[in-house]
């Protein structure tokens, strides 16, 4: 079987041209997703049914359907409606980049809000009672006790979600975006050497995953420095 190692080496720089867009999609969607997730989390944790139920429905829908289908509904589906084509949002919803960002953000927000909720529910009741006993207001208890502890508990799961997001950015290639997978697919269409090119792309993704995981290990070590064994 012909397997050309030099082709892997020579295709790496070409695929790396898509790295910028991959990281851009990852960073922008992660940021939007996190902001949205906090909003959904607050709705989900409130005691008002009219806030809880929309949040539950949102999480149920976005976790229960494939991201690819969500992306298609937004990118191919929304232009079906005339009022969307006439609206001020049309320049955004026409653009595959923004459609990918919207789909990735909406999708990750559902997962992240559940991850954060797990963190909030994991905070020891005793700490919050101690805060009450010290006369802290509800806002102070949330920002100074619950939030920092919840974030620390949620970090490991959140790092997995970032890795999962990195992998999801590959789906943007299905709506014509030239991120790393998109570039790799184009090169394969030209050279028809799928093994070498896709393996080269996989290597880059694995390096990125390693960087993300190492970064989060450092953050986790920092946030847990009080329990470090001396």
């Amino acid at each position: 079987m012909s397997f050309d190692l030099s082709l892997i080496a020579s295709s790496l720089p070409k695929i790396l041209q898509g790295l910028g867009l991959t990281l851009n999609l990852l960073a922008v969607s992660t940021l939007f997703g996190l902001i949205l997730a906090v909003g959904i989390l607050l709705m989900r944790l409130s005691r008002r049914a009219w806030l809880v139920w929309p949040a539950r429905a949102y999480i149920y829908f976005f976790r229960g359907t494939p991201l690819l289908v969500q992306l298609f509904v937004i990118y191919h589906g929304l232009p079906q409606f005339g009022f969307i084509r006439q609206s001020v949002f049309w320049p955004i919803l026409r653009d595959p980049y923004w459609c990918s960002v919207i789909a990735l953000s909406l999708n990750t927000a559902a997962y992240v809000s559940e991850i954060l909720r797990g963190g909030v529910l994991g905070v020891d009741k005793g700490f919050i009672e101690a805060g009450k006993a010290l006369g802290l207001s509800k806002f102070q208890r949330t920002t100074r006790i619950t939030a920092p502890l919840a974030v620390r508990l949620a970090l490991p799961a959140y790092s997995n979600e970032i890795v999962s997001m990195l992998k999801s950015t590959a789906l943007a290639s299905t709506v014509t975006l030239m991120e790393m997978t998109g570039v790799a697919r184009t090169i394969v269409a030209d050279t028809f050497a799928p093994y070498e090119i896709f393996i080269a792309a996989t290597i880059i993704y694995l390096v990125l995953v390693w960087i993300i995981q190492t970064a989060f290990t450092l953050i986790e070590t920092y946030t847990n420095r009080h329990v470090r064994k001396i």
Binding site: S168, L171, L206
Partner: peptide
């Protein structure tokens, strides 16, 4: 586990589809 949990699903799928076709042909 490192490779299959780190690589995008789409990339693995394309690698298998196009790659295995070539291997099988040979």
């Amino acid at each position: 586990t490192i490779v299959f949990r780190g690589a995008p699903e789409l990339l693995v799928l394309l690698l298998f589809y196009f790659g295995m076709a070539i291997a099988l042909t040979q």
